[in-house]
């Protein structure tokens, strides 16, 4: 499953991330990214699929096959 696959069904998606550097949230156009324990949560109901979070992630986590 990837972010785009999940986006078709909406809801929210959680991506494993222990870095919590905040880069994805600061470029997010919709403000739909929050941090939980060891994961990034993306609210796909609000997500506008700009995919800026995918582009700037320093470790390439978001958009990869690494969903919780």
């Amino acid at each position: 499953m990837t972010l785009l696959d999940d986006a078709r069904h909406a809801g929210s998606v959680r991506v494993k991330c222990n870095w919590a550097c905040g880069v994805c949230s600061v470029v997010c156009k919709a403000g739909c990214i929050t941090y939980g324990e060891g994961c990034v949560e993306i609210d796909l109901d609000r997500c506008v699929l700009c995919l800026f979070c995918v582009r700037v992630c320093p470790v390439g986590l978001i958009g990869e096959n690494d969903l919780v």
């Binding site: 880069v23 470029v27 997010c28 403000g31 582009r55 700037v56 992630c57 320093p58």
Partner: peptide, 19 residues
């Protein structure tokens, strides 16, 4: 600042992505 509505989000070319 973002919650207070003072600052908005950054453009992708306004941030150095670093490791």
């Amino acid at each position: 600042s973002r919650r207070a509505g003072i600052l908005g989000s950054l453009q992708v070319n306004e941030i150095f992505s670093c490791a």
